[in-house]
């Protein structure tokens, strides 16, 4: 075995080690991120991963590929006559002068020269993949874990109802045929807590089993977030006692548990259980008993 090939084997081994190191540090970076992150460690691992990758590629190109030198003729710009060029090139190619690479090397041969080391190529792909995966991890920082947040709103047991202007709502102040947008006290304007308070006549309401005491004196509250695409269900038609969503025209029957009766929505608007506190203000008996708004995968 000649010296050159022993040198090459040694370089190959070093490159392989570097690529493996690059992959390991990249994965280490991912682990660092996943376990909470640490600035110095992140910088060190990223630097090591990129550095070993860079060294491996440079070493590969420097020691394992045909070294040259290759010669290309310089042409004075003004002399480059486009009319003549293709012809001259044809001539060059025909006479073999175009291929100045020793041994007649071409592009495909360059590819072959790289491909002659399949093990290193595999390592390279692996290391690049690991770096790519590690680079994806910071995407996780873009948003919090959804967790159970979609199942909860700010409504709590005993939370008093307030209007958009922050006024507490007294039981009975709403006349029959009136509607009011309410929020839990201290959470005015919260998108998922917005609730419609409607006064219907008690006899009309078709109360669902288990919801007998949810609507004191015909004051019934439903989530204002459409179960279709999440728009505020803002249109209350008193005569038919129906709620219409202005975005996609889903129609909900207020009398019948806000059941969808027309349009693209398929679920009733969740009902908020109401009560009256000792001071005569309307309060919630608790949070909604289901996730409000449009559907999502985790919703049972």
């Amino acid at each position: 075995m000649s010296d050159t090939s022993r040198d090459e084997r040694r370089t190959e081994r070093a490159i392989a080690v570097a690529l493996v190191l690059s992959a390991i540090t990249a994965l280490g970076l991912a682990v660092t991120y996943a376990t909470g992150g640490q600035v110095q460690l992140e910088g060190f691992l990223l630097g090591l991963s990129l550095g070993t990758m860079g060294w491996a590629l440079c070493a590969w190109g420097k020691h394992l590929l045909p070294p040259g030198p290759f010669v290309q003729q310089r042409q004075h710009p003004a002399e480059a006559d486009p009319e003549q060029e293709p012809v001259s090139r044809l001539v060059d190619e025909a006479t073999g002068e175009a291929s100045t690479l020793p041994g007649g090397g071409t592009d495909t041969e360059g590819l072959d020269a790289v491909g002659r080391r399949p093990f290193l190529v595999k390592l390279l792909v692996g290391a690049a993949g690991a770096l790519g995966v590690a680079a994806l991890f910071p995407i996780r920082s873009l948003g919090p874990d959804p967790g159970r947040t979609l199942f909860r709103t700010s409504w709590r047991k005993g939370a008093r109802l307030v209007t958009e202007e922050g006024r507490l709502v007294r039981a009975g102040e709403l006349e029959v045929g009136s509607v009011l947008t309410v929020f839990p006290e201290g959470h005015i304007g919260e998108a998922d807590a917005q609730t419609l308070l409607i006064r219907a006549t008690e006899d009309d309401l078709r109360t669902r089993p288990g919801r007998e005491d949810w609507a004191p004196r015909g004051q019934v509250a439903y989530s204002k977030v459409c179960t279709h695409a999440g728009c505020p269900v803002g249109l209350y038609q008193v005569e038919s006692r129906r709620l219409l969503c202005p975005c996609h025209q889903s129609l909900f029957d207020v009398i019948d548990g806000a059941r969808p009766v027309f349009g693209p929505a398929s679920r009733s608007l969740p009902q908020l259980a109401l009560d009256v506190d000792d001071d005569g203000y309307l309060i919630a008996r608790g949070d909604y008993d289901e996730a409000i708004g449009p559907g999502f995968w985790e919703r049972p």
Partner: peptide, 13 residues
């Protein structure tokens, strides 16, 4: 008064 199908907004609202 909330005429027709319009809800009414009384003095309390």
């Amino acid at each position: 008064i909330g005429p027709g199908t319009m809800p009414n907004f009384g003095p309390d609202t």
